[in-house]
């Protein structure tokens, strides 16, 4: 039972961050290998504002999310937009993104060291729940994640910008012809995608200690969730994230905890082998 609760918590975080990765993948047509490191970046900014500047956690979270989005927008302006203008190939973009991932992660190590850090929050008593413990923070994570996912659903299906984003991810050339301001929509994709990633990052810090490599170790589960759920299918991604989160935690019952990471690798490879379009079917 405890494992299931842990799995749901980590699954919510994977799902939340993976949606951003999936949106960017669909819209810009490349895998952003730096996505996980934006997650870690957000957690560290929240940590810094919270502990070093002594700000309360809630405003610290907001500041951190804003900072992460700003960094993403900056990267769009200095890297991705110019590269799109140059008609850079997908492989070029992938390699640039892994370069960015290395830079971001090592800036965190350079400034805060490679060890683990904790937010300055009081340890609160957990509730007993069918013989397992669930902490208020864990409940907060699950609720926030689901709220945001519903919000995203509303945004994508009801608002103008959301519809433009979907049009863009279906066919960027067609969207351009039909008069959509592509660069603006791409910018919004970064803002929302990284906003979700940042939220996932700061929430992650609530339920476990943060470390610079946390984004790196989230990247593979995120990919696994996306591939499992079908690329570009947000509901599939949520389900995929939950499945990965649960299977990672449940695996610890039989395997050493170090192999959590391997679980998502195995799941992902198996899906690629059997049904590469994802078990929930992605948009083609």
């Amino acid at each position: 039972m405890q494992l299931i609760i842990n799995g749901l918590v980590i699954g919510s975080i994977i799902a939340l961050t993976a949606i951003g990765l999936s949106m960017i993948y669909k819209t810009l047509n490349f895998v952003n290998f730096a996505h996980g490191d934006f997650v870690a970046f957000a957690a560290y900014i929240a940590f810094f504002v919270n502990t070093s500047l002594g700000v309360h956690l809630a405003p610290a979270f907001l500041i951190s999310i804003l900072a992460t989005i700003l960094l993403g927008v900056f990267m769009e302006k200095v890297v991705w937009l110019p590269m799109r203008r140059k008609n850079a190939t997908r492989t070029t973009l992938i390699i640039i993104s892994i370069g960015l991932a290395l830079v971001l992660r090592n800036i965190l190590i350079f400034v805060w060291g490679g060890g683990t850090k904790n937010y300055n929050i009081p340890v609160r008593q957990g509730f007993s729940f069918f013989g397992a413990t669930i902490t208020p923070n864990q409940i907060l994570v699950i609720i926030t994640a689901f709220l945001l996912m519903f919000l995203l659903h509303y945004l994508l299906s009801r608002t103008k910008i959301g519809k433009a984003m979907r049009a863009l991810s279906d066919n960027i050339d067609l969207a351009r012809i039909s008069g959509i301001d592509v660069d603006k929509v791409v910018l919004w994709t970064w803002v929302i995608g990284l906003g979700l990633a940042a939220t996932g990052g700061v929430l992650y810090g609530l339920v476990t200690a943060i470390r610079p490599s946390m984004g790196w170790y989230l990247l593979l589960p995120m990919f696994a969730a996306i591939i499992l759920g079908g690329i570009g299918n947000p509901y599939g991604t949520i389900a995929g994230g939950m499945i990965i989160g649960l299977s990672q935690e449940l695996s610890t019952a039989v395997l050493p905890t170090e192999y959590k990471f391997a679980v998502s690798f195995v799941v992902m490879t198996a899906v690629l082998l059997v049904k590469p379009e994802g078990i929930f079917g992605g948009a083609k």
Binding site: Y25, F33, R90, I94, L220, F223, M268, T269, L272, P276
Partner: peptide, 10 residues
């Protein structure tokens, strides 16, 4: 080509 990148890194 993305998939090989992901799987090899994993």
């Amino acid at each position: 080509e993305d998939y090989l990148a992901i799987v090899t890194i994993g």
